[in-house]
Design a protein around this nucleic acid. Structure first.
Length: 846
RNA sequence: GCGAGAGUGGCGUAACUGGUAGACGCGCUGGACUUAGGAUCCAGUGGGGCAACCCGUAGGGGUUCAACUCCCCUCUCUCGCACCA
């Protein structure tokens, strides 16, 4: 009886079996090589989407493959469970965020299990549980002790729709990363984590991220944004104060013809008498469409040449970067050039390209002899239409004229320091990480405010500070924590006087900055501190993560924060490594009809529907087959059917060939095909193809996880099997070997059907306790090859020849070939090129 | 503007260090079996030509016996950063 392939039946059967057998439970085992395979955990939004399906299918293939290769594999899953959507849902459907979240987790966990993913659920992490977020608070306290967590009053990014502060990393093109509302600036007192203390190290260590996509490393480098330059003080005429500017182009200092300060610069208020105009400039702060400036009426002195230059307030100068003031060199900065033209400010050339030195009448300064030859004021004849921003030779720059700009940068920096005009500095774009959120559903920041003692951290022994759940989330008037008197009012840990709790909660990115550490231990309320410090701790065995898989959207956010957190933990003496993720795979998006699948675009495909109609094996196979993991995946309903057809075909083959467990092709056959030469030619080729396929699939997986071509290879083998008609017992043994190999190679991709058919042909489950097959190089070798014969680089003929012919023999064979003889005719043969085992190219004269 | 990546059949894609361009899948065409097929199986499928052959990897040059692959120029698309001084 040939059963039909019924994915529902098969998949549920094996999911139950795996779970009952506890097949994916992981234990520390020092005698085995470990492999930590991690996929980014989901936010429990309610249901999984195709991006999850793809992400987790990729991770599961790697985990299962590594397991079969003999690794002790840690493959955990959890929930990034705090966050705003829970509160929004609470407001909309009047359910408690907690209830909503846990219900979603329940459902999504079912969905993940329905996909047949090999997780060890005993290590499940749920970040909204007190036993987890307690350690967020603990880390916070440790950072507070070390001055790495601090509070400051400042302008911060504010999302009016989410009614909360956002970190710089969470503002994308001036909009909220979550709801895309325009972000405004608001002055607030906020908690920050001092990630800038690690800026240099995080940057340096980028070089070590060999297993990361270059693209992500570059994004991290750019985000950290190191620049080396100088700060220079410019005196203000008729005022005590100086303006401190920052520049990386101190070689152009002699060309500075004005100074600009940010509209929010502390001096702006004092220098500008016309407040109305100042407000106008301020209103356009940060707008890139138009550059406007306001002359203050004051002048500064360029300390290099004592020249009097005007001071402007300009909307494009950022208070947040450098000193909030710049010197402007219109000749060598396009932006300054445009500004100077608009406001009629002189433009002075101080650098010329090396090849234009002669026209300008200058000579390169010989550094040693100081033979500075400043001939005449040729600069007046240098008329430029745009700024020259490249390197060149200095002119009009006093003692520095004639120097190459890169050398002048060093010399001038030195000069500035030696003469007390300023100092060399390093600036970073990276800002400290603002973690305060004016929201309810997050980790309470463990701090109290006492009238007498000020800011007092909650003592460790009083952790966790529990987020009260008996509150009403209304969405009106800030966090519900402000309403909870029980939460709000507390005693000061120092003086026992009356105190008030901090009501802001932590950014949820704090939760995800160390969750992969927590997976190293089984779930439950553990004392993480002593667990980590135990010399036999599992963390020493499992960390770092060997393979991390997730979307590229976290290239700077989560990945940078995690790298920071791990370093803080290292400096707390908890761990002895610095990088959490050894290898990173950023999978592409799932695209449909030319756009990313998303609810707002209305082009989503529901995984539930897919799982129900085709089953998990098909869904997984399609996602893995349609594109390599790092590239975008174009959704195709037809393609899914193709994957389904393939599995059906495989199913049919196994049942059609009825392996009698009692016969020689049955369960006792160990495939000792030691007399290969006895096999019929067709069996021989199948046997060879099988070994070739083992090799191909294995190397495709090893080489950058090219699952798409690995699956293509499997399909080829199945095509061979389909056309193979066994005639003898030996043929059957060969066929069985081929089929068993297909099942083993397919098992990481489509685990259920592999397990089912493995059993159906008389093997004992589980297929996942089998070793990954090995190929035999000899058996995989073709005994004949197809020789391609080219004449002058053009394909002219093909010929089957036996393996192992010498170059001379090959040449002879090729030249004797009828068609080649015709083409070559009587032409002289200039050269014959032979590529071993592949082709011959005969080069003739004309 | 800067940085990164990519342009290959009707479509998704393949071709590892230069060596048969188009594996595998989808779609399409024809056939078989069928009351029927949107099921299954078999065959074909880059374009042109009866054919030998010619033309084809965004476009144009170059290196080479040989280029999707290496070099130079141009164009297009995607992603990231974007007044960072």
């Amino acid at each position: 009886m040939e059963e039909r392939y019924d994915p529902q039946r098969v998949e549920l059967k094996w999911q139950r079996y795996w779970s009952e057998r506890g097949l994916y439970k992981t234990e520390l085992n020092p005698s085995l090589k470990k492999f930590y395979c991690l996929e980014m955990f989901p936010y429990p939004s309610g249901e999984i989407h195709m991006g999850h399906v793809r992400n987790y299918a990729i991770g599961d293939v790697i985990a299962r493959y590594k397991r079969m290769r003999g690794y002790n594999v840690l493959h955990p899953m959890g929930w990034d469970a705090f966050g705003l959507p829970a509160e929004n849902a609470a407001i909309k459907h009047s359910v408690h965020p907690s209830e909503w979240t846990y219900k979603n987790i329940d459902y999504m966990k079912k969905q993940l299990n329905r996909m047949g993913l090999s997780y060890d659920w005993e290590r499940e992490v749920t970040t909204c549980s007190p036993e987890y977020y307690k350690w967020n608070q603990w880390f916070f306290l440790k950072m507070f002790e070390r001055g790495l967590a601090y509070k400051k009053y400042s302008y911060v990014n504010w999302c009016p729709s989410c009614e909360t502060v956002l970190a710089n990393e969470q503002v994308i093109e001036g909009r909220c990363w979550r709801c895309e509302s325009a972000v405004t600036q608001k002055e607030l007192e906020q908690w920050f984590l001092k990630i800038t203390d690690y800026a240099d190290e995080l940057l340096q260590a980028c070089d070590e991220l060999k297993g990361w996509p270059e693209k992500v490393v570059i994004m991290q480098r750019n985000w950290i944004g190191k620049s080396i330059g100088v700060e220079v003080n410019f005196k203000i005429i008729d005022m005590e104060e100086k303006i401190r500017i920052f520049t990386t182009r101190q070689d152009t200092l002699f060309g500075a013809t004005f100074v600009c300060i940010a509209p929010t610069h502390p001096l702006a208020e004092r220098l500008v008498s016309d407040k109305e105009s100042l407000e106008k400039v301020r209103a356009r702060y940060g707008r890139m469409d138009e550059k406007i400036g306001l002359f203050t009426g004051y002048y500064a002195i360029n300390p290099m040449n004592d020249e009097r230059i005007p001071i402007y307030v300009a909307n494009f100068v950022l208070m947040e970067y450098g000193t909030g003031a710049i010197m402007s060199v219109p000749a060598h900065d396009q932006r300054d050039f445009d500004f100077a033209q608009k406001y009629g400010i002189p433009i002075r050339v101080v650098i010329v390209p090396e090849d234009r030195m002669q026209d300008a009448g200058y000579k390169i300064q010989d550094k040693k002899s100081h033979a500075s030859c400043i001939m005449h004021h040729a600069s007046s004849s240098l008329i430029i239409e745009k700024a020259y921003e490249d390197e060149g030779i200095l002119i009009n720059s006093g003692q520095f004229s004639g120097l190459r700009s890169d050398i002048a940068r060093q010399d001038i920096a030195k000069f500035i320091e030696e003469n007390g005009l300023g100092k060399s500095v390093v600036n970073f774009k990276l800002r400290d990480w603002g973690i305060s959120r004016q929201r309810y559903w997050g980790t309470p920041i463990p701090v109290v405010y006492c009238d007498k003692c000020g800011i007092v951290p909650v003592p460790e022994k009083d952790l966790p500070v529990i987020l009260p759940e008996d509150v009403q989330v209304t969405g009106k008037g800030g966090s519900p924590l402000l309403e909870s008197q029980e939460f709000l009012n507390t005693d000061c840990p120092k003086c026992s006087g009356r105190a008030r709790r901090e009501t802001d909660t932590m950014d949820t990115f704090v939760d995800s900055s160390w969750y992969f550490i927590r997976y190293c231990f089984k779930k439950g309320d553990i004392d993480l501190y002593s667990e980590i410090r135990n010399p036999k701790s599992e963390i020493r065995y499992w960390m770092p993560v060997d393979q991390y898989i997730g979307g590229v959207e976290h290239a700077v956010l989560h990945l940078l924060y995690s790298r920071f957190f791990i370093r803080v933990m290292r400096d707390l003496g908890l761990i002895n490594f610095s990088e959490p993720f050894r290898n990173l795979l950023t999978q592409g998006m799932v695209i449909k009809d030319g756009a990313k699948m998303s609810k707002s675009k209305g082009n989503v495909v529901d995984p539930d529907y897919l799982l129900k109609k085709y089953g998990a094996d098909t869904a997984r196979l399609f996602c893995l087959f349609a594109a390599p993991p790092e590239r975008d995946l174009e959704w195709s309903d037809k393609g899914v059917e193709g994957a389904y057809r393939f599995l059906n075909r495989l199913w049919g083959i196994v049942y059609r060939n009825k392996f009698d467990p009692e016969s020689s092709s049955g369960r006792n056959s160990k495939f000792e095909i030691n007399k290969i030469s006895n096999l019929q030619t067709s069996a021989m080729s199948l046997y060879r193809k099988t070994h070739q396929t083992i090799k191909r699939v294995t190397t495709d997986i090893e080489r950058e996880f090219h699952f798409n071509t690995a699956i293509a290879g499997l399909m080829e083998l199945v095509n061979w099997i389909t056309s193979f008609k066994p005639q003898s017992d030996e043929d059957l043994v060969t066929l069985r070997f081929a089929i068993e190999t297909v099942l083993l190679l397919l098992s990481p991709f489509s685990p259920h059907i592999a397990e089912e058919l493995w059993e159906a042909i008389g093997n004992k489950p589980s297929i996942f306790e089998q070793r990954w097959p090995k190929w035999d190089e000899v058996a995989a070798k073709e005994e004949e090859i197809e020789l391609v014969i080219q004449v002058n680089g053009k394909l002219r003929s093909k010929l089957m020849i036996p393996l192992g012919l010498s170059d001379n023999e090959i040449k002879e064979v090729a030249l004797k070939e009828q068609r080649i003889k015709e083409i070559v005719g009587g032409k002289p043969i200039k050269k014959v090129i032979i590529v071993k085992g592949k082709l011959v190219n005969i080069v003739t004269g004309s």
